[in-house]
Design a protein around this nucleic acid. Structure first.
Lengths: 245, 245
DNA sequence: ATAGGCAAAAATCTCGAGAAAAAGTATTGA
DNA sequence: TCAATACTTTTTCTCGAGATTTTTGCCTAT
């Protein structure tokens, strides 16, 4: 019974569709190409600043030129690709300052969202937080084998955890922006994890956030979350300079 | 043999282009169509929820089908248009709750940006604020004739004023998001102005913001700015219910 | 009379080729 | 040797036609 999409007529807001539908399967070739491209950009297959030539990529992704063009346009929405006038597309460049900006903006949005979540969340929200935290903890245990799949699993569950935390925040716009920023920071976090495969004690940080959230201690929870997010910035800051360029 | 991606030397940051290039002239047909469409959506020519059929619109805007498709895709970035799987495009719906969400998120972002602007702004920033305020005041005087051009001029300068206010905020991301939200609220503000052509004493509010900003009184400035933005929400709230649907 | 299903129509999505623009290369002259 | 110009190549942008999918209308059966 997971074929959801049951639309209730009353109360459009709660079940209003997200600004970017990202959960379902891709229903069009353009969207499929978009997802592959997004993955490849985040994974670093296409490096920051690289030119994305339609003629070359259309063969690689097995779609027509116009279709690939649309996929690139979708990536512009996520700010993973920049389009310049009559000069084609490029992978969005990265820089330390940009990451600092992303991180601080994330803190601003995510703390506000968490505050509202704590204020408004019901039992179901608490349950989803505990569940997501459990899944993340399990993924952390398996992370020690260093395999690629386990890290991907951890990435997925880490994201799910952060999403669920602010899941009771009623603002679709904050969640939308937060979503974009999370994708962005994923590119940087990849660099950090590559260098520092076993991160700092992130488990304890998550635990502390969960405890404060369930205790409805918004001030404490947002404080820890802020430090948690900002710590990633510090980790990237300590990378060799030539990693980012 | 992939080569390279010639990276430029440093200093990319200061002159980094905005996330959405909006100032220049449109350099491509798709972008031209995008701007016309955006204007028409904000102006209400295409009403919220309307279906946007490519076959009809391509004649109206005098471009090919693929080109119009790209224009629509660009509008998805601004969240003025929603694309559903294999079922084409629609003008993004509006609702009171959505506007409340937009407004509150705007307050969150814009106050944070203003705070940083006040903290970091230099003499040139102060000058630009005073200049923008002056232009806006002049536009307000001419607003009494009720002509369409004068209201458009006011819209333009009001936007410029709010942009300049947070112009010294170094965060490109906050400015980017704020930009999107401003476009969104423009749709709603149009409804409000239509009903209430001579708005409340918005001049005094702007004046108070400028005074507090130049006095480097961040707490006061952000407080007034918050109330200022929220007041628009109240104005729309008092519209007849059937205005929004 | 209503519900279900089949068929026609409309709309979307996709592709490849042609026109416009940018980038790269070679040539010429000081 | 260097700079400026003209030419060639590459790439982007645009268009119209064909293939799929969705929607609409009609018909039949219970």
């Amino acid at each position: 019974m997971n074929k959801n999409s049951g639309n209730h007529t009353m109360n459009d807001l709660a079940n209003a569709p997200d600004l970017v539908t990202d959960g379902d399967e891709p229903k069009t070739l353009a969207e499929a190409a978009y997802r592959q491209l997004r993955r490849d950009i985040i994974e670093g297959v296409h490096r920051p600043g690289d030119k994305l030539r339609v003629e070359h990529l259309k063969d690689q992704y097995e779609v027509g030129a116009g279709t690939l063009r649309e996929a690139l346009q979708l990536l512009v929405t996520d700010a993973l690709v920049v389009a310049q006038g009559q000069r084609g597309f490029r992978v969005a460049p990265i820089s330390l300052d940009d990451f600092a900006d992303i991180t601080r903006t994330r803190v601003l949005l995510e703390t506000s969202a968490l505050q509202q979540s704590i204020e408004l969340g019901d039992d179901a929200w608490e349950a989803s937080v505990v569940a997501a935290f459990h899944l993340l903890s399990r993924a952390e245990e398996k992370l020690s084998d260093g395999s690629k799949t386990s890290r991907e699993e951890w990435e997925l569950r880490n994201r799910a955890f952060h999403e669920v935390l602010i899941g009771a925040c009623p603002s679709r716009w904050i969640r939308h922006f937060q979503n974009i920023l999370y994708h962005q920071s994923e590119r940087y976090r990849r660099l950090s994890l590559f260098r520092q495969p076993i991160p700092r004690d992130v488990h304890a940080e998550h635990q502390a956030i969960v405890d404060a959230a369930l205790a409805r201690n918004a001030a404490e929870a947002t404080r820890i979350l802020s430090e948690h997010i900002l710590r990633t910035l510090e980790a990237v800051r300590q990378l060799p300079a030539d990693f980012i360029s």
